[in-house]
Design a binder for these strands. Structure first.
Length: 381
RNA sequence: GCACAGGUGACCGAGUGGUUAAUGGUAGCAGACUGUAAAUCUGCCGCUCUUCGGAGCUACGGAGGUUCGAAUCCUCCCCUGUGCA
């Protein structure tokens, strides 16, 4: 089988590359918009394509509960269901186990949880998560992990890491024996021999040695890519940086590295410059719906009264359609009026900003120089 | 003109003698948001000072009155709605 990942250029530790999936190429470093429930909230698929998104996320937990993975499988898989022919990555539900604390109980077997939708009881295991993800048919699926809470004592972080290692192992075992069950598996020719890929996830709390050990032992399982999880859970930024740097050293250079759940625009540029290839975050989409826009001049809260008569664009340096067409005054009016279009336009802008940030970084790596790009994007948060 | 009902902070609307500058909403102002239980959540929201602990002033249509104490009870007046003339 063709290799999933190709590196095209280096600039110090940073790399520009390409991930080849059954649903197209993903240029890296890549920012992946979150499409949790089968939609990147507020943005239609055709606009996502226009924005240049090459891969988006779906979420196992949400889609399992509603509309149900069997229904999606029956309709041909998530790509077809949501009419997204580009690459798709599904998260394993590990993060929901973390964020739904109070609704769940964790055991060695897996996670007993109650649906946030109707209170019904469910059990998620590594096998179950992987089964659901195969049914959904994402191009990249994630091992089922436990996102260690923060702060966590060393002993707790170690126990959690050990359980994640066992769960990741089980996820891989299940995947290896069932990966031919992906909904589009019969479509080999068109898919150029590509099939689903599974990534492992590194945990280890905020402990450098645990992080390193978690990375090394996950790498021994030989995944086609590796994610760094358990970050952006409330830790200081320097600590996050240290954990990422530590894990990157322990990960193989020829596989994609994915930092889960980050970050602010300047953060993602920084991580990309350190050699991270993939990132996802709800921030650009959620913040947009809440009126927070990211611009080349920093963050901007569109509901502020000072924009009421501002005829200028959100960001004078932005090349997105929203900035080329609408004024701050109009966008503020839409937001303050509670018009759905506010969320749409704001999200379009923020996603463009994130995706364009990655394009700039990628371009800079191609040119072998990151300094200009980073200084330009460094004061965004 | 008569009879009911009613007049509460920008608006709607609780409160019918005392922990009441006055519950709740809305509107307004500001903030937060990092593998989405999030088009959500938080704070402020009478005025003036403040060492940020608080202090003073003004407020429940208007004017009086009862009472230790009134948005709450009484009297008169003004206004609004509905019905009858």
């Amino acid at each position: 089988m063709k290799s999933l990942f190709q590196i095209q250029a280096h600039a110090g530790p940073a790399r520009a590359g390409r991930i080849s999936t059954a649903h197209g190429e993903v240029e890296t470093p890549a920012f992946m918009p979150c499409g949790t429930a089968g939609t990147v909230k507020a943005v239609p698929q055709d606009i996502l394509e226009e924005l240049g998104a090459q891969i988006i996320l779906g979420n196992t937990y949400h889609l399992y509960l509603r509309p149900g993975h069997e229904l999606i499988r029956g309709l041909g898989g998530l790509h077809k269901f949501m009419s997204w022919e580009r690459a798709l990555l599904t998260d394993s539900g590990g993060f929901q186990v973390f964020s739904l604390s109070g609704l769940r109980k964790i055991t060695e077997e897996g996670v007993h949880f109650r649906s946030h939708l109707d209170g019904t009881s469910h059990l998620f295991t590594p096998e179950r998560s992987t089964e659901v993800q195969i049914a959904l048919g994402g191009d990249i699926i994630m091992a089922f992990d436990e996102c260690t809470e923060h702060p966590a004592e060393r002993a707790r972080a170690r126990d959690s890491m050990e359980m994640t290692l066992r769960w990741v192992r089980r996820s891989k075992d299940y995947f290896e024996s069932h990966k031919n069950e992906v909904p589009w598996s019969g479509d080999e020719e068109r898919r150029a021999g590509r099939t689903q890929a599974q990534f492992g996830i590194v945990q280890g709390g905020m402990y450098v040695d645990l992080r390193r050990e978690s990375a090394e032992r996950t790498v021994e399982m030989d995944f086609s890519g590796y994610a760094i999880g358990g970050l952006s859970v409330g830790e200081p930024r320097e600590q996050r940086l240290e954990m990422i740097a530590t894990v990157l050293e322990a990960l193989p250079r020829d596989r994609p590295r994915y930092v889960m759940g980050v970050g602010y625009p300047d953060e993602i540029a920084q991580y990309a410059s350190m050699g991270v290839d993939m990132m996802d975050c709800v921030l650009p989409t959620r913040a947009a719906r809440h009126g927070l826009l990211f611009t080349s001049e920093g963050r901007l809260n569109i509901k502020n009264v000072r924009f009421a008569q501002d005829q200028g664009p959100l960001d004078p340096k932005c090349g997105c359609k929203v900035c080329s067409r609408y004024s701050r005054a109009y966008l503020r009016h839409l937001f303050v009026s509670g018009e759905p279009l506010a969320g749409v336009l704001n999200t379009v802008h923020n996603l463009w900003f994130y995706l364009d940030t990655m394009r700039s970084v990628r371009h800079a790596i191609g040119l072998g120089d990151l300094s200009g790009t980073l200084s330009g994007k460094a004061s965004l948060a």
